[in-house]
Design a protein around this nucleic acid. Structure first.
Lengths: 330, 330
DNA sequence: GCTTGCGATGTGAACGCAAACAATTACACT
DNA sequence: AGTGTAATTGTTTGCGTTCACATCGCAAGC
């Protein structure tokens, strides 16, 4: 910076002013400085700036299972929004969910000097662990259900699950079976609740729940059992990947979809339109979720008086060919 | 830090020594300092450290299409390896591929003070844009074919494509059709080359190439045309998502797989084992790719005399049910 | 013509840390 | 005891910025 100042024939402070768009700099002076900057290909040193301003311009993201479509899309949305808000994004992805890992990741991020943290870790335990450090750094949770103390942005899983269940019921199915996600995830819980509640409200029996881990493999395994049960005519899967596995198992067992069994998923991953058959599902816009979460975080940083701390995004049903009317009982 | 020093009754320099594990600190002194650190919950200021050491402990990743399974997995692998090497990871994901965007992303990262950059942007244009700035910051490319001047880590697409094609040929198919990826991607080119070369070596005719954009939708569209062509008995798709779309189109057209047509993919995404039918494919371990890339980058940073600048990882064929022997011609 | 005030610029800290160098102490050996 | 060397600790300096304050010049007001 000293070099720039010398070349432009001004003081380093004036250079700083130009850099930061401070007022009271004569246009002519500004131009000279700008020219010197270009001439020397000068780059401000972000560490020095961070040191003195105490602002790193960096936000942290802690994420879990980040190879999955949902988390990856949220991260992408976050990064996009962060960039346009002038922040860098530093990621820390977790391999395991225990409180220690989460703590470690957040500590790491904090040691790096992030100004805020977004958590893509929709587990009850993770949110708990995170909310404890919210005192030192602003935190938002993304896609994390609705029970957390920290501000969050999520799809309305309850409503989405209810809509899916209702759709099947309206098609004439006596009841709807459910392949749930793994225990401990907020999504799992909310979708389970939405499903159960809808069944109960309609007076439909609430059958035993099958439980998976979001993977196609686990959906397949649930599907093998479901295929063997002649009672089942409609299944709501807690996500599309499990629905894929379920579809596969049903196909192998010679149970036509939607002829004998209707299947509905959740997420609307890009592939689900090309499953066999194309999957009816509940769309959630992960990218949008990420963007909204980041906006929330930025507001928090700016000290906006907690305008909204919980943002619920409405999901949208996407009707395709995996659901159909119940067969009339003979 | 001054507070810690005072509490421990030593100079700030000794505190610094303890922090950095410098030698020649008496165990007793070290303990006192450590105790003081804990007592005050002292956190070193990374900006100050970066300022004086000129090392940010941060690596940048520029990535494209980061919601896809491949890029997301590579990012994950990179992050994991970076963390264990003591680096933070800052991401910049691109929405578009033009040179300006790439340049902008890298500039951003550099302004932030990253010590090195990993590029997950397997486009010819991106690699070109990146290699121009390699002078100022070490760069590695991940999964980016083999034509770049920058060090890179990639799966051996040529060999993988050749193996896939050979597999189909060995099954007795007269030739193999190919659904390629979008133009401009290094993977597209290498897989295309591997396929064509194998065909030529076997004296099989080289049919017209179908071209997609990696998405299931584009595979579906290619599939509609392929289904209408009675000559086709074997198809090699440049990735699994397109294979999914292809499978769907074939199914709709009443063309059994592998009964009438064999299909092989590339990538082995977790879902492909649950396609209908389960997909034979060529596995690439994206996470491993990311990790290896990061190791390479760290070596570069450490000044290791360019031990290896191009690392090729062997892919592995995964046989499932979507491929089978060619029907004997009547 | 001499204040007064504001726009425009410069000067000297200070941010929190590590590197270089200086100083002190301990210990072994002669 | 005397000397040398290594271990241990302290002091000073500077990294590249921004901030707080000082300075300068010029135009308006009386």
């Amino acid at each position: 910076m000293a070099d720039v100042a010398k070349l432009a024939g001004v003081s380093h402070q004036t250079v700083s002013r130009v850099l930061n768009g401070a007022p009271h700099v004569r246009p002519g002076t500004r131009d000279k400085v700008l020219a010197a900057i270009r001439e020397l290909d000068y780059r401000p040193n972000s560490a020095a700036r961070a040191l003195v301003t105490r602002r790193s311009q960096t936000l942290g993201v802690v994420s879990f299972a980040s190879t999955l479509y949902g988390p990856a899309s949220m991260l992408d949305g976050i990064e996009q929004a962060a960039r346009s808000a002038g922040y860098f994004v530093s990621v820390a992805s977790l391999r395991s969910l225990d409180a220690r890992s989460v703590q470690e990741a957040v500590d790491r991020l904090r040691d790096q000097g992030v100004e805020g943290v977004a958590v893509i870790a929709p587990q009850i335990s993770a949110v708990g662990a995170v909310s404890r450090l919210s005192s030192s750094v602003p935190v938002v949770a993304v896609g994390s259900g609705s029970r957390s103390r920290v501000p969050m942005v999520a799809v309305d899983n309850l409503t989405g699950a209810a809509a899916a269940t209702r759709h099947l019921l309206d098609l004439g199915h006596g009841t709807v079976h459910h392949v749930a996600g793994p225990a401990g995830w907020l999504e799992t819980q909310d979708r389970l609740d939405g499903w159960r509640r809808t069944l109960e409200e309609s007076g439909a029996p609430v059958p035993q729940v099958y439980s998976g881990d979001w993977s196609a493999r686990s959906g397949y395994e649930a599907g093998r059992q479901i295929a063997a049960d002649p009672e089942v005519t409609a299944v709501f899967c807690a996500n599309d990947h499990m629905a894929l596995g379920l579809l596969r198992a049903l196909h192998e067992a010679g149970r036509p979809v939607p002829g004998e069994i209707s299947v509905i998923g959740f997420d609307d991953i890009p592939e689900s339109a090309y499953f066999t058959p194309p999957l009816t599902t509940v769309r959630q816009d992960f990218g949008e979720l990420g963007r909204r979460a980041l906006e929330l975080l930025v507001e928090e940083l700016a000290g906006v008086a907690h305008a909204r701390s919980h943002v619920l995004v409405a999901p949208e049903m996407v009707l395709r060919r995996s659901t159909g009317p119940a067969r009339r009982p003979a």
